[in-house]
Design a protein around this nucleic acid. Structure first.
Lengths: 133, 133
DNA sequence: ATGTGATCTAGACAAGATCTAGAACTAGAC
DNA sequence: GTCTAGTTCTAGATCTTGTCTAGATCACAT
């Protein structure tokens, strides 16, 4: 991964230890963490980190296009460091969220909607693990 | 609309004034109200209605298949009285949620996902009103 | 009328998220 | 190096959504 300090500088954010700790966790994670999970993990690197700073930093990272908030789970926003377009699969039992490659599913007709101009879309699937592969 | 009292009886719910007031609003609404919005409107018909009863009643209506909760908006669950499968379009400016008929958009490939068995899916679109028509 | 079970209410509680006021820090000017 | 202005951080208050609880009320069969 690109050096985090350099990355933060490149997008115009002062690379403070707090921001580095938040970025290190959220940008490497593939598990769609909540803000609280980011706080918990980033505190291992930066123990005085406060909740407000986590929210502030996640908002900055979002503004810079490094993470995307997703409204998929009940009651919480989760953060996705996979910013290219893709779909989501949610395990019904556990609530775990998995990325589904853009090309794995094809959507058609969304351009022809009467009255609405679609700028972005995703397929949200729910289900369970297959018994075998 | 079918008489509400008869409808509640048919699905096995005692038709109390509180439940009728909740059902009257949420079943007629097409605006995907939150629980608080249901409370606010249903109180016009039943002023002593409490928050807990709204949540209880919405859960009963969900169990009976009369409404479906949707996790689309940040931080809140919204209730949809349109229970047949369909997609959703979200206006980016206002956050307003609109139903999109199932046939307006076609999804393919979701059955062939490796490792996952899809039991349900929807397309979530975001965008804005077209300038005309 | 009475008892049982279902239902309702107000308020306590918990979690996610935002806001605030002041402290600490950083970068740049001197 | 020191000062200053602006940025960033922290703890804690606050707000909102949603759940839970204890007791009051209601419905209904007997």
């Amino acid at each position: 991964m690109e050096d985090l300090i350099a990355l933060l500088r490149r997008v115009g954010l002062q690379p403070t230890p707090q921001r580095v700790a938040v970025a290190r966790y959220v940008l490497a994670s593939t598990s769609h963490p909540t803000a609280d999970q980011v706080l918990e993990h980033a505190r291992r690197e930066c123990p005085t980190l406060s909740r407000a700073t986590v929210y502030n930093t996640l908002t900055r990272l979002e503004e810079k296009g490094l993470v995307r908030p997703q409204t998929i789970r009940e009651g919480v926003v989760v953060f996705d460091s996979h910013v290219e377009r893709h779909h989501h699969f949610i395990e019904e039992k556990t609530g775990a969220i998995h990325d589904v490659p853009w090309d794995a599913v094809v959507v058609s007709g969304e351009k022809k909607l009467r009255g609405w101009e679609v700028t972005e879309y995703q397929v949200v699937m729910r289900g369970r693990k297959r018994r075998r592969g």
